[in-house]
């Protein structure tokens, strides 16, 4: 970098200095709020530390404890993994279905788009409180409606077998958020492609599977990664509604992390938990990225 600096003309040097001046807030923020914290986090994960005294180096003990002596860790991992497996396909498929409906160019579609996106802007706390009331076992509107068609509704958040699916169902209410991203992808597909396919005699399904889906794969890929990361980090809903219960059936990973770090102040162990979750997310991202060569279609190919 120094060599290239010498090669610059005085004017270019001035421009470079100005650029670094403009960048300085970000450079400082990058070092202080990102680089150092990540380094410290890795270090802390090998220590025992309760924030009051100095951290004590204990080698890989935190990780050994996680994998061999901590049933709560396995429970949190299992519950979170299940949640990702249930909610991710639901959100991806329903989001696409909704986007396909909204993509019909008809009068009034903007109105519907507005309606379906509303849930996505409401805070997780407000959504959680609302669904807590809607899914009350006796007086809730959902069970009342189910009752009207002769189905006995479950106890939702208050039943150990139903709590996790309830949280997943609740997250589907926000599906308008991904529908909008799909919609942007759909609207980028050139209309001529459909016209040409129609002339060639392709039916509705043919056009959907051979044009819409392949050209939408970059959007699907993007959503898959974003929603996957989001699902692994689920916290607010469990914190507000179930506190991890009943019987730890919604004890999500981030909830365990929060309790270890900020209630029990086991900062060393919690750092190991955080690092492991980051590694899981990273590995899943890399895996999806690796498979993407087979199924994501890029126009330049």
């Amino acid at each position: 970098m120094l060599a290239s600096w010498r090669r610059l003309s005085p004017m270019a040097r001035r421009e470079a200095l100005e650029a670094y001046l403009a960048l300085s807030p970000w450079l400082f923020g990058f070092v202080v709020f990102t680089a150092i914290p990540i380094g410290v986090s890795i270090f802390l994960s090998f220590t025992q530390w309760t924030i009051v005294e100095q951290p004590t180096w204990i080698g890989a003990d935190n990780y050994v404890r996680m994998f061999t002596r901590d049933p709560l860790f396995w429970q949190a991992l299992k519950v979170t993994g299940l949640f990702v497996l249930i909610s991710l396909p639901l959100k991806l498929v329903l989001g696409l279905a909704l986007a396909l409906l909204l993509n019909n160019r008809l009068p009034g579609m903007n109105f519907f788009r507005t309606v379906f996106y509303i849930p996505a802007v409401i805070s997780g706390v407000a959504v959680s409180l609302m669904w807590m009331w809607l899914l009350q076992p006796d007086t809730g509107v959902v069970n009342t409606l189910l009752d009207a068609v002769g189905v006995k509704g479950p106890n939702w958040f208050w039943d150990k077998d139903w709590a996790l699916p309830s949280v997943a169902l609740m997250s589907v209410w926000k599906v308008g958020g991904s529908a909008i991203i799909y919609l942007a992808g759909l609207q980028n597909i050139p209309a001529q492609l459909y016209e040409a396919a129609e002339i060639d005699g392709a039916g509705k399904w043919g056009r959907f599977w051979r044009i819409t889906i392949p050209l939408l794969t970059p959007t699907i890929f993007f959503q898959l990664i974003i929603e996957m990361i989001d699902s692994f980090k689920i916290f607010t809903e469990a914190f507000v509604i179930t506190q991890g219960g009943p019987l730890k059936s919604t004890y999500f990973y981030m909830l365990y992390f929060y309790e270890e770090a900020f209630r029990n102040f086991n900062m060393g162990y919690a750092s190991a938990l955080a690092l492991f979750l980051t590694l899981i997310i990273l590995a899943t991202t890399i895996f999806i990225n690796y498979t993407s060569k087979r199924w994501v279609y890029y126009e330049s190919e």
């Binding site: 990102t34 150092i36 914290p37 990540i38 986090s41 980090k233 981030m254 955080a274 980051t278």
Partner: peptide, 14 residues
């Protein structure tokens, strides 16, 4: 791309 939770504890202690 970096998930925020990995930074929570160091930032809190800082």
């Amino acid at each position: 791309m970096i998930p925020g939770q990995i930074k929570l504890i160091p930032l809190f202690s800082m």
